[in-house]
């Protein structure tokens, strides 16, 4: 399942997509510790699978929470995407 966490408003679309079909097989969930803002958590989803998700209280402000990892100009690799060995995490902006 592709779970899109975030929102769209007049300024653009801000979604972090987690492909839970890939996430399901990960045994270390590096994203949880890699994110400096601690956006990620491990949940048991509706189908009883343990997967990574964006915490509820961050979902409506991820544009701002992720801002530190997305400087203008040269953009370094995103810590969450880099730590995700199955390649399950993508950002829409």
């Amino acid at each position: 399942m592709k779970a899109n966490y975030g929102y769209m408003d007049g300024s653009g679309e801000y979604f972090i997509t987690i492909d839970t079909d890939l996430c399901i097989d990960c045994d270390h969930h590096g994203c949880v510790d890699a994110c400096p803002e601690k956006l990620f958590e491990i949940i048991t989803d509706d189908y009883d699978d343990e997967v990574s998700a964006i915490k509820e209280d961050h979902r409506k402000k991820i544009k701002y929470d992720c801002a530190a990892c997305k400087p203008a100009g040269d953009r370094p690799p995103l810590p969450c995407a880099e730590a995700c060995t199955p390649g399950a995490i993508t950002h829409s902006w």
């Binding site: 399942m1 592709k2 899109n4 929102y7 769209m8 509706d46 189908y47 409506k60």
Partner: peptide, 10 residues
């Protein structure tokens, strides 16, 4: 079963 979802509640 859900394969992809997106919610806008902002």
């Amino acid at each position: 079963k859900v394969t992809n979802f997106l919610m806008n509640d902002k």
